[in-house]
Amino acid sequence: MSIGNSPEDERPFHDDREEATPSIGDALRQARIAAGLTVDDVSTATRVRIAIVHAIEADDFAPCGGDVYARGHIRTLAKAVRTDPAPLLARYDADHGGRPAPTPAAPMFEAERIRPERRGPNWTAAMVAAIVAVVGFVGFTAFRGEDSGGAKNQAAEGPASSTSAAASPTPSDTKPADQKPEPSDSAIAAAPQDKVTVQVSATDGRSWISAKDHNGRMLFDGLLKKGDSKTFQDSSKINLILGDAGAIQLYVNGKKIQDDFQPGAVERLTYTKGDPEVG
């Protein structure tokens, strides 16, 4: 008879609680089933393709096309099945090397300064300048006429009227303040007609966005916080991906886009010089 612990008792303790933690795909699938939704229901509500929903529930993120898109899909699906996306995104970042760093948008504007495109004459600006010149000339002539009439009256009235004449404002003080046109309410309204200009503003929350030019060159890939805004220009086309389109307001070629984007929806958009119509 032996006294003490048996060999089985000396084996290291194995905690099964870690194995009980579901993966990202399992957590989304369990939440979908608990919400009484099918894969078709989730795909219809989020506009994420059925094949991608199946892949994510199988923990296969390759069809998403990159970490930014995968994170956007995880957030969108989690909201659709009414579960908190934060733990799932934290686990994805831990498994895939952390959240991707945003790419600054400055290189695009430096490239524009280095390789400026030739533009035709701006006839609109020339017409505005001509109108301002005409208005200024007419106003100056009118004030000169009034000033000449006042000088004649002063000569007829004698020295007694010199005090009131000195108190009256000079023509330079009474020039109308609206000889120059007021600036536009939005700088985007002055977008050049020979380019496509897209302004992306996070008005209702934050959202990950990606912007590319017509050659597929990345212009911006990162997070817009609430209140942030980015403007992109290209000679022919801008390609956008919005991670949470419901938080974004778009202005294309100086016009506001009225699309009813849903919160948490991932949108892929293309705009050209002829828009605002989604390409």
Results as ranks from 00 to 15, higher is better:
128 V>Q: 07
130 A>L: 13
131 I>S: 12
131 I>V: 12
131 I>Y: 07
132 V>D: 08
132 V>A: 12
133 A>I: 02
133 A>D: 14
135 V>Q: 12
136 G>T: 15
136 G>L: 04
137 F>Y: 08
139 G>F: 12
139 G>T: 15
140 F>Y: 15
141 T>G: 09
141 T>Y: 05
141 T>N: 05
142 A>F: 09
142 A>E: 08
143 F>V: 07
143 F>Q: 14
143 F>W: 10
143 F>E: 09
144 R>E: 06
145 G>M: 09
145 G>V: 07
146 E>H: 05
146 E>L: 12
147 D>R: 06
148 S>T: 11
149 G>Y: 06
149 G>F: 04
153 N>D: 11
153 N>M: 14
154 Q>Y: 07
156 A>S: 06
156 A>C: 01
156 A>E: 14
158 G>E: 10
159 P>E: 13
159 P>I: 07
159 P>G: 05
160 A>V: 11
160 A>G: 06
160 A>T: 07
161 S>P: 01
163 T>S: 11
164 S>I: 13
165 A>V: 13
165 A>H: 08
165 A>Q: 11
167 A>Q: 12
168 S>R: 14
168 S>H: 05
168 S>K: 10
170 T>Y: 00
170 T>C: 00
171 P>V: 12
171 P>I: 12
171 P>C: 02
172 S>N: 10
172 S>E: 13
172 S>G: 04
173 D>Q: 09
174 T>H: 00
176 P>R: 13
176 P>N: 07
177 A>I: 11
180 K>N: 13
181 P>A: 09
181 P>S: 07
181 P>G: 03
182 E>P: 05
183 P>L: 05
184 S>K: 11
184 S>F: 08
186 S>Y: 09
186 S>E: 09
188 I>W: 10
191 A>H: 10
192 P>Q: 02
193 Q>K: 06
194 D>N: 15
195 K>H: 09
196 V>D: 03
197 T>G: 06
197 T>V: 14
198 V>S: 00
198 V>K: 04
199 Q>F: 05
200 V>P: 01
201 S>L: 12
202 A>F: 03
203 T>N: 12
204 D>T: 04
205 G>I: 01
206 R>I: 03
208 W>L: 02
208 W>Q: 07
208 W>V: 08
210 S>Y: 02
211 A>L: 04
214 H>E: 14
214 H>G: 09
215 N>M: 13
216 G>A: 04
216 G>H: 05
217 R>P: 01
217 R>A: 11
218 M>G: 13
218 M>P: 02
219 L>E: 03
222 G>A: 03
223 L>R: 05
223 L>S: 01
225 K>G: 09
226 K>V: 10
226 K>P: 03
229 S>F: 02
230 K>I: 01
230 K>R: 15
231 T>D: 00
231 T>I: 15
